[in-house]
Amino acid sequence: MVPLDSVDLAAIWLTLKLATLTTVLLLLIGTPIGWWLARTRSKWKGPIGAVVALPLVLPPTVLGFYLLVAMGPHGFIGQLTQSLGLGTLPFTFAGLVVASVFYSLPFVVQPLQNAFEAIGERPLEVAATLRAGPVDTFFTVVLPLAKPGFVTAAILGFAHTVGEFGVVLMIGGNIPEKTRVVSVQIYDHVEAMEYAQAHWLAGGMLAFSFVVLLVLYTSRLKQGWRG
């Protein structure tokens, strides 16, 4: 019998909601950033690229701690959200979404940037000679050509957000149905010595992650991976 209770199921549902919302936001934010990084000759390309990649190397505790301080009542993000009448972000679902966007940013931007770079100048020049405007070119030429990049970015962004732990632990406050995601719930079960539930959730995470990567790598092989 599966020993998972309603709290576990709420954590699973919350995690899926968080990952979905984060992925959608990241695709919206990551596309212009990735496009800019792929095409620019600006001297800011290096610094911006480095900032985007920071979450790859920083321990989540560093990111979580800075977000906790910055989004708190005395931090600059906290001051901003308070002056807008939104209160402060830690311990809220919105706060988790903001943190996850930072945390998973490179996993979305980098595949997109690679995909855009792989397209090269030529299709864009051809489109221009056919009198396509920049917006038209982006939607009719760039997007279809970069599709594998978008698929990779979405999958990685989603999976990485599901796997998030340290940041959520630092700013979440472990509130059921608001900030208690699966990874935190597993940690709780392990600490409370409820190993049966911990195994079910942890095993589920393992299976999920494997399937996601399997789909990703199999589809890459099939299409000869252009992005």
Partner: peptide, 16 residues
């Protein structure tokens, strides 16, 4: 909820 008493202290000390 803090995962332990240290984290709980941190939540209060940062004013969150």
């Amino acid at each position: 909820l803090g995962e332990n008493i240290t984290q709980t202290h941190q939540f209060v000390a940062t004013g969150n």
